[in-house]
Design a protein around this nucleic acid. Structure first.
Length: 489
DNA sequence: GTGGATGGAT
DNA sequence: GGATCCATCCACA
């Protein structure tokens, strides 16, 4: 468990009784205090059983200081709802998730690790053949010199620090131009990344029951999302074929299943809800394919005219909107001209006028208040909203647009987690919450309790927000089950 | 030890 | 020059 007390980003207190000490070697207690203009940070790292008593003594001091210095501001800044009803009760839930851990198949991890190793060794040999010399492929500096000096390839762009850029888009361009070595390096990068960051690291972090226990950060993010470390279980691969294999290593115990529930398009739904855009709300009420629906609107298509290319473009714009897109960014994303991108965005704002209003309002609000807020009034401070530098200002503006959406989604799934945790206890459902991945919750459940879990969890996730606020847009949850995470998702 | 480059997720 | 994170590696102090 990783808890911060932070005034910048919501305020938190914890009670020692709330914490599980089953996995103290995974426990980091972090105390952050900001008073006036000074910043004072005390970090307790890797608390062990031996010093738990000392830690308890420290905690009394921290709690005292918290109430003396921070609690008055908590009230004054009206952040009390989020504190009392979301983040504080979530502490117990996270503690339980961390203690549960999730089982991994160590044999399979070993097989995967060897497979990745062998494949990357082969690639290495082929890369050296083409480069005519051996070098450290993992060094961007050496790689850049090989490609752009020795082999004289075109398109060498320097990074800030003066080395040649060798990121995936650069290498991809070279690969498309027929430079075989670039594709080999991309493949090599994928395999070595999977091995070092995932298969080997996960193996190393298992306990004596083959389970891994992450630590969740409750106050590490600007928007109110959780974060996950040691290992980070919120970025397990899914996009590539090799990456997907990693998810197969996360398994359920004998006689049990892993069940995954995920919110469908929650951030776009919240954008519709917060902005009040009629067109968007209608599409969600009718349970339409939202990207196809957007394609119809902005390209003026009928049902028979929609194809994957239109849908892909509409999807990129929808996601771009959430992030406060610029025509330049969209152009790059879709590989189209700036003017074409600008046309798309203009058309978008014509069809979804309240979205445009929302964006403008967020920027105004942030300029006036130096913060924005989620549906549940979580405050998110925004720095640089009036900066003279357009890059700094633009960044702040995009934060002002994105943070309430991302943060509201975080609030909602947190509320659901708290309620589900209660419900599982109350109804004696033999199931454990294992993971949260921003819009997804994963459980391990006795086979015979599966139906009970599904009906309860789905209902809570889809309706918990209604306890506090009426919504125009429905929230929907998809679920799946299997013997491993890949199957459940 | 630390910052930069890179890349994994939502 | 699209938001939020975290881990790994290299290179340099």
């Amino acid at each position: 468990m990783l808890i911060s007390y932070s005034i910048d980003n919501g305020i938190y207190k914890h009670n020692l009784d709330d914490l599980s000490f089953n996995h103290l070697n995974h426990t980091t207690i972090k105390y952050k205090e900001v008073v006036g203009t000074g910043k004072n940070e005390i970090t307790f790292d890797k608390v062990t059983i031996d010093n738990a008593i000392n830690y308890a003594a420290e905690d009394a001091l921290l709690t005292f200081r918290l109430f003396q210095n921070l609690y008055p501001r908590l009230i004054k800044e009206k952040a009390n709802f989020v504190y009392q009803n979301i983040d504080l009760p979530l502490v117990e839930v996270l503690s339980s998730i961390e203690a549960n851990g999730i089982e991994v198949n160590k044999k399979f991890l070993t097989i995967l690790s060897n497979e990745f190793e062998n494949e990357s060794k082969k690639l290495e040999k082929n890369i050296y053949k083409l480069s005519k010399e051996e070098f450290n492929i993992g060094s961007p500096k050496q790689l850049g010199e090989i490609l752009f000096i020795n082999l004289k390839m075109p398109g060498g762009k320097k990074t800030k620090s003066g080395t040649y850029s060798t990121d995936s888009s650069t290498l991809n361009n070279l690969a498309v131009d027929g430079f075989e070595i670039a594709q080999l390096v991309l493949d090599w990068r994928e395999l070595t990344k999977l091995k070092s960051t995932y298969t080997d690291a996960l193996f190393r972090l298992t306990d004596d029951k083959s389970r891994v226990h992450t630590s969740f950060g409750l106050a590490n993010t600007l928007t109110g999302r959780l974060s996950s470390t040691d290992p980070n279980l919120q970025n397990i691969p899914i996009r590539t074929e090799n990456g997907k294999k990693i998810r197969t290593a996360f398994v359920s115990g004998k006689g049990k299943k892993l069940v995954s529930f995920d919110y469908s398009q929650i951030e776009l739904r919240l954008a519709a809800e917060i902005s009040g855009d009629k067109n968007f709300i209608k599409a969600f009420k009718n349970n339409e394919d939202i990207h196809a629906s957007t394609a119809k609107e902005i390209f003026n298509l009928n049902n028979s005219q929609i194809n994957n290319d239109y849908r892909r473009k509409a999807k990129a714009i929808n996601f771009g909107i959430l992030y406060g897109i610029s025509p330049y960014g969209l152009a790059k994303q879709l590989d189209i001209s700036n003017t074409e991108a600008k046309d798309y965005i203009n058309e978008y704002f014509i069809k979804y006028p309240k979205i445009k209003k929302y964006m403008e309002h967020q920027i105004d609000f942030a300029k006036t208040n130096q913060y924005v807020e989620t549906i549940f009034k979580r405050k998110i401070n925004i720095k640089g909203i009036s900066d003279k530098n357009f890059a700094v200002r633009g960044f702040a503006e995009r934060q002002a647009i994105n943070a309430p959406i991302q943060g509201s989604a975080a609030d909602i799934i947190k509320l659901a987690m708290i309620e589900i945790h209660k419900e599982i206890k109350l109804k004696n459902i033999e199931a454990q919450m294992l993971l949260q991945v921003h819009d997804e919750l994963i459980f391990e459940v006795e086979n015979i309790k599966y139906d009970n879990l599904v009906s309860n969890v789905k209902t809570i996730m889809e309706s918990i927000h209604l306890k506090y606020k009426d919504f125009s847009v429905p929230l929907t949850v998809d679920f799946g089950a299997g013997d491993h995470w890949g199957q459940a998702h």
